[in-house]
C-alpha cells in the first residue's frame, strides 16, 4: 500500500502534465496565423506577443490594410475551438499604426512587449506546406 509521501509527487506530475509544451503552443499559433491569412487577404503580417509567465492566453496583433484606425491597440477575445484550443486576444492595426507601435508612440496592452515577439509574414506563411 502506498503512503501519503509516495502519492504527493505523482499528484505534482499530474498537474504539470496539464500544461501544454511550448512546441504545441507554437504549432497551434502557426496554424491559427495561417488560417487568419487564408481568411483575410488584407492582413500583411501577424505578430505574436509571447507570454513571459507561461500563460496559455495567446496575444496576436494583425497588421491589416483595412483595419479601422483608432490610435490604440484594442483587443477582442476569440473563443477556443477544437481546432485552436487556446484562449486568444486579437487586435488589428493599420500598417501606419504598426510603425507607431514599433516606435513606441502607441502603447501596447499590459503584459504585451515588443521584446518577446514572433512575426509572421503573409507570403512566407502561405508559401509553406501545411503540416
Amino acid at each position: 500500500m502506498k503512503t501519503k509521501q509516495q502519492e504527493k509527487p505523482r499528484m505534482k506530475n499530474a498537474t504539470a502534465q496539464k500544461k501544454r509544451p511550448a512546441q504545441q503552443i507554437n504549432d497551434i499559433v502557426r496554424r491559427m496565423v495561417r488560417s487568419h491569412f487564408e481568411t483575410e487577404d488584407v492582413i500583411d503580417r501577424v505578430v505574436w506577443f509571447k507570454s513571459r509567465n507561461g500563460a496559455e492566453e495567446i496575444h496576436l496583433l494583425e497588421v491589416n490594410r483595412e483595419a479601422i484606425p483608432s490610435g490604440a491597440v484594442m483587443t477582442f477575445y476569440v473563443g477556443k475551438s477544437k481546432k485552436f484550443p487556446l484562449p486568444t486576444l486579437l487586435a488589428d492595426v493599420t500598417p501606419a499604426e504598426w510603425r507607431k507601435i514599433r516606435a513606441g508612440k502607441i502603447p501596447l496592452p499590459e503584459g504585451w512587449s515588443l521584446n518577446n515577439t514572433v512575426e509572421f509574414a503573409r507570403k512566407k506563411i502561405l508559401s509553406q506546406v501545411e503540416q
Binding site: 479601422i68 490604440a72 484594442m74 477582442f76 486576444l89
Partner: peptide
C-alpha cells in the same frame, strides 16, 4: 465586447465605430 477582450475603459470611452469594429471581430469568434 471590447471590454471583455481586455481593452481598457479609457480606450473604449475614446473610441468610435465600436459596433463596426465589433462586427469585424465577431466573425473570428469560433
Amino acid at each position: 465586447y471590447l471590454l471583455a477582450g481586455k481593452t481598457t475603459i479609457d480606450e473604449v470611452e475614446n473610441s468610435h465605430l465600436a459596433f463596426t469594429r465589433f462586427l469585424r471581430f465577431i466573425s473570428r469568434n469560433s
